[in-house]
Simulated scan of single mutants.
Amino acid sequence: MEIILAKRAGFCFGVKRATQMAFESAEKGGKTYSLGPIIHSPQVVNRLEALGVKVLRELDEISDGTIIIRSHGVTSEELEEALRKELDVVDATCPFVKKAQENVKSLSEAGYDVVVVGDADHPEVQGIVSYAKGKVYVVGSEDEAARLPRMKKIGIVAQTTQSFENLEHVVLECLRKGSEIHVFNTICDATAVRQQEATALARDVDCMIVIGGYNSANTKRLAELCADIQPRTYQIETAQEIDPAWFSEVNRVGVTAGASTPKWLIDEVIDRVREIDGAKIS
């Protein structure tokens, strides 16, 4: 059985940067917190907690110390509250997410009603939305965009982990809703490249393994895209979840991972698959 690992599996630039900043903060000691999980990898969060980084749900829980802003960003109100409390703020917001926040703010100030393409329940989207000063709508699909009201000026940004196809479909629908459209393609290049590599790999293997947190939007999307092509697609967080039965009559296994998945988790999965069938990796 041959194992083929996608070239760009695992940490993207923003996640790698945030994780490095979090571990560096932990090493300094003192009261250190993160507002929400620093990235969507429970295993990385657990390692940080072992070093003393406590995950908070709200800033009301603390009055001093260091607060790490997660890679997905936080709302503008939360950031203002942290500064008002004079906390030591380590802003690990992904630069691409930060750009989406800035785009929403500038569109709103220019008089556009803002449409954010993404998952309304995702912390990244909740943070992005908070930078709008006027009307703002969150849509996850073309069908949801079809239910938007008529607007004179529409500004559009996307959650960084959205697929380009979904953004395109929403934009086309918005063309029917307004006379002036301003679109910022805020999809992260790393996300697009991972999706392209994953789908190409799924077409060439008998089984796909997608590694990443179940709370990770980009990992979930990778798994969905692969499953559309290769029905024998399995999303896992750790090597312990692998079922040897998955590899019955399988000659080639594809492996990819979400942007929040550390290399050590990928290595453990590959080692486990190799143990099952004495597989070789390429």
Rank of each mutant, 00 (worst) to 15 (best):
H182Y: 08
T191P: 03
T186D: 00
E224K: 10
M208T: 09
V193G: 01
D204S: 07
R232A: 15
N185H: 07
A217D: 03
R194Q: 13
T191G: 08
C207W: 03
Q196M: 14
I209M: 07
V193Y: 10
D228M: 14
T219G: 04
E224D: 15
T186W: 02
Y214P: 04
C226H: 10
E180S: 03
G213I: 12
R176Y: 07
G178Y: 00
I187V: 15
D204M: 02
P231N: 08
G213K: 15
M208R: 09
C188N: 07
G212L: 13
R203M: 13
K177V: 10
I229K: 10
I211H: 10
L175G: 05
Q195N: 09
N218Y: 07
H182E: 08
V183N: 03
T219E: 05
A192V: 14
T199L: 08
I181F: 01
Q195F: 05
D204H: 01
R194V: 10
I187W: 01
Q230A: 10
E224P: 01
C174R: 00
R203S: 15
T219Y: 02
T191V: 15
V183W: 00
G212F: 13
C188Y: 02
V183L: 06
S216Y: 10
G178T: 08
D228Y: 09
I209T: 11
E180A: 00
K177S: 13
A202H: 06
N218M: 04
